[in-house]
Simulated assay, not measured.
Amino acid sequence: MKHNIKSSAYKIMHEVSNADTRVRAFHVSLTTLILLNVLAVILETVESIATQYRVFFTAFDVFSIGVFTIEYLLRLWTCTADARFRGAVKGRARFTVTPFSLIDLMAILHFTYPCSSPSICGL
């Protein structure tokens, strides 16, 4: 059963086909969250908006990093379903140095570093 869950999760997160509604919903949701984050970063540069909606921006940052962290960990867990990344340790190590994985990791680490976000630091 664990293998079926992992395989299904892998398919949803890594497949690019629009035929499966779950795959499409996952990618649309993630893309929407990314675009909303870009919009939030832009809006935070406007002093009056940043000041008025500081609590919202902080909550949205925390929510987003939570979602992105869970997504990264799920990708790391499911990557062994791909033949290129077979092996609990070596496969995952190979996965973590792929370009997209490195980009995801840098985005997560950026938010976990103290004062990486103006709204979190109260700036």
Rank of each mutant, 00 (worst) to 15 (best):
T51Q: 15
N37M: 12
V55I: 14
S117A: 12
I12N: 05
H27T: 04
K6P: 01
S119C: 05
V97A: 07
C79R: 02
W77L: 05
T21M: 13
R84L: 14
E71W: 04
C121A: 09
C79I: 07
L36Y: 09
V38H: 07
N4G: 02
S29V: 14
G91C: 07
E47L: 14
H110C: 01
D61I: 02
T31M: 11
K90N: 12
T31W: 10
R54I: 00
A50M: 01
R92G: 01
L30V: 09
E15L: 14
Y10K: 03
L109G: 01
F56I: 10
I49L: 11
I103G: 10
V89I: 12
K11I: 03
L74G: 01
T96M: 12
A107R: 04
F100V: 13
I5G: 13
F56N: 05
C115W: 01
N37I: 00
V62I: 11
Y10N: 09
V62M: 05
I103L: 13
G122H: 05
I120Q: 00
T51I: 14
I5M: 15
L123A: 14
F26N: 03
T112S: 08
N4T: 14
M1T: 11
F63R: 05
L109H: 12
R84I: 08
H27F: 04
A59E: 02
Y72A: 04
H110D: 05
Y72K: 04
V89H: 07
S116G: 15
S117G: 08
V41I: 07
I12H: 06
A25L: 15
L105Q: 05
T51A: 13
E47Y: 11
F95N: 09
I49D: 00
I108A: 05
A25E: 06
T31K: 06
K90L: 15
S119E: 00
L76A: 07
N18P: 00
D61C: 02
A40D: 03
N4C: 13
L43S: 08
L33A: 08
S48A: 10
L39K: 00
T32M: 05
P114H: 00
L33C: 08
A40L: 09
Q52N: 08
T96E: 06
A40N: 02
V38C: 15
C115K: 13
H3P: 06
M106L: 13
R24W: 04
E47R: 02
H14Q: 11
V62N: 03
A88F: 15
R94H: 09
G87T: 07
E47G: 12
I5L: 13
L73E: 13
V89M: 09
A19D: 10
V97C: 10
I12C: 08
I12G: 02
A93W: 15
R22T: 06
I65E: 05
I65F: 04
R84H: 10
T112E: 12
F111M: 06
M1I: 15
N37W: 08
V97P: 05
S116N: 06
Y10Q: 03
S29M: 15
K2G: 09
L76H: 00
T31H: 04
L30T: 03
E15H: 11
A81G: 10
R54W: 01
A40E: 03
T45A: 10
L33D: 01
K11T: 08
C115Q: 06
A93D: 08
S117L: 00
Y53Q: 03
A59N: 12
A59Q: 02
K90W: 13
Y113L: 01
H3T: 11
T78D: 04
L105K: 10
R92A: 00
